[in-house]
């Protein structure tokens, strides 16, 4: 069984790094470059979890998260800018379950994902 992860991220390289990392571990990755598309993708594919960039063009990550009851039921990990004052609090206030602060290394992301992807032991085994 492969899990489905939605990556909402406007920066193409960041999106690709996450995609390459996750697909290499046999996850299904759905991508969206902005909040509106992300909302639509979440509604259509019911991913678990969602990785959401906070600074997005147009509708930002908070707005997208707050707006939708379906989204609120899915674990959301916010990807926040490095050390910006109160970003973590803002992410929590917006209903995000956790956050990763940029810059992140794929390894540190991986550790965080595992908390949400467990208990699928096979998944952990796939990495390295």
């Amino acid at each position: 069984m492969s899990k489905r992860i939605l990556v909402v991220e406007d920066q193409e390289d960041n999106r690709r790094i996450l995609r390459d990392l996750l697909t290499s571990a046999n996850f299904e990755v759905i991508e969206a470059a902005d909040g509106e598309t992300g909302l639509a993708a979440a509604a259509a594919h019911r991913p678990d979890p969602i990785l959401m960039d906070i600074q997005l063009p147009g509708l930002d990550g908070y707005e997208a998260t707050r707006r939708d009851a379906v989204l609120r039921a899915i674990p959301i990990i916010a990807v926040t800018s490095y050390g910006l004052a109160g970003d973590a609090d803002k992410a929590h206030a917006a209903g995000c379950d956790d956050y990763i602060s940029k810059p992140y290394s794929p390894d540190s992301c991986w550790r965080k994902f595992r908390e949400y992807l467990c208990p699928a032991d096979e998944v952990i085994g796939m990495r390295r």
Binding site: I17, S24, S81, P103, S105, P106, D107, R128
Partner: peptide, 23 residues
């Protein structure tokens, strides 16, 4: 520094993925 960091993140991210033999 924010602008400088964005591309550097990509460089470091890909490097790590290559070192992890993902490619």
């Amino acid at each position: 520094s924010h602008e400088l960091r964005t591309p550097l993140n990509a460089i470091l991210g890909y490097t790590e993925l290559i070192l992890d033999s993902i490619y």
